[in-house]
């Protein structure tokens, strides 16, 4: 018997964790003191930071709804899902089609365990532990291949996770590896931290980025061009291309509620 060669890094609740910080930013409670303290620091620099998180989460909701309602996609692989609390993939997708299947993937073992707890009564949603930097281990994971049907389209979500992958880890080839496992007609749903639009904003953003340097998950800011470069030719980026999260198929009811957030860049692509 071959043992599990993937060894989890120890759970360290003395350093902030991206998925738990994001949970707190969205008003969730699945986080620790260190995550909250970190978020307060970010918010001092960016009082509207929570709105970026909201814009991201709202985009995720709209994209999933669009995929189920208009593209007939009923399979989702959400990589870097964090803790699927408010308005997450399975809630949105299963509201439209209760048969929709979702696998959540996160690197943080606590996030995964809590996801499992939240999904306990949901037979069509699972959570597994995985690292985007090892995409084969995700697409060949026992639960993934047994639960998702790779002969039919699957939507792979990488929402607010790619900016934690540095260039050295070659995010383009990571996405390609995943793309290879997908049928034509499958989708990529991406979002990424983009640059601020004002000089003053850029300065504050740089300070915030430096805060993340002290966490296990430093952030890489990429602009729209760079985000496009992460997607190879096997995917076609769909209209409207790379845009701010709130510009992607906006819902008039939602956009009225919060101001535009240009630093949340998003794109949806289809496997050719």
């Amino acid at each position: 018997m071959e043992p599990n060669t993937w060894v989890p890094e120890g759970v360290d609740i003395t350093v902030p964790n991206a998925s738990r910080v994001y949970d707190y930013a969205l008003g969730g409670m699945h986080n620790f003191t260190v995550d909250r303290a970190f978020w307060h620091q970010v918010q001092e620099l960016f009082p509207e930071a929570h709105l970026v998180a909201r814009a991201n989460r709202a985009y995720l909701g709209r994209a999933v709804r669009w995929l189920v309602e208009e593209q007939g996609v009923t399979q989702f692989l959400d990589i870097g899902s964090g803790i699927p609390t408010l308005g997450n993939v399975h809630e949105v997708a299963q509201e439209v089609d209760p048969r929709a299947r979702v696998v959540y993937v996160d690197i943080d073992p606590i996030a995964v365990e809590q996801s499992r707890s939240l999904l306990r009564d949901n037979p069509n949603a699972h959570a597994i532990r995985g690292d985007l930097r090892d995409p084969d281990a995700i697409v060949w994971h026992d639960q993934v291949i047994s639960f998702l049907d790779f002969s039919r389209p699957i939507a792979v979500l990488m929402v607010a996770v790619l900016h934690f992958i540095p260039d050295e880890a070659d995010p383009r080839s990571l996405i390609s590896r995943i793309g290879m496992a997908l049928m034509p007609g499958s989708f990529l749903v991406l979002s990424h931290a983009g640059p601020e639009v004002t000089e003053e904003g850029l300065q504050r953003q740089e300070t915030a980025r430096q805060l993340y340097e002290k966490t296990p998950t430093p952030v890489v800011i990429r602009d729209g061009r760079q985000l496009l470069d992460l997607v190879d030719d096997s995917f076609e980026v769909l209209e409207p291309g790379v845009v701010a999260a709130d510009q992607w198929r906006p819902d008039p009811e939602e956009t009225a509620e919060i101001p535009p957030q240009p630093t949340a860049l998003v794109a949806v692509a289809r496997r050719r």
Binding site: P3, N4, V7, P8, G10, V11, I13, M29, H30, F32, P109, I110, V112, E113, Q114, S117
Partner: peptide, 24 residues
């Protein structure tokens, strides 16, 4: 309730880590 759940999740995670280490 969430605090309790986090606590449980941590224990489960630690237990899993421990068993992986033991396996290793």
């Amino acid at each position: 309730a969430i605090g309790e759940d986090i606590n449980r999740a941590m224990r489960v995670t630690w237990q899993a880590d421990k068993s992986v280490l033991q396996h290793r």
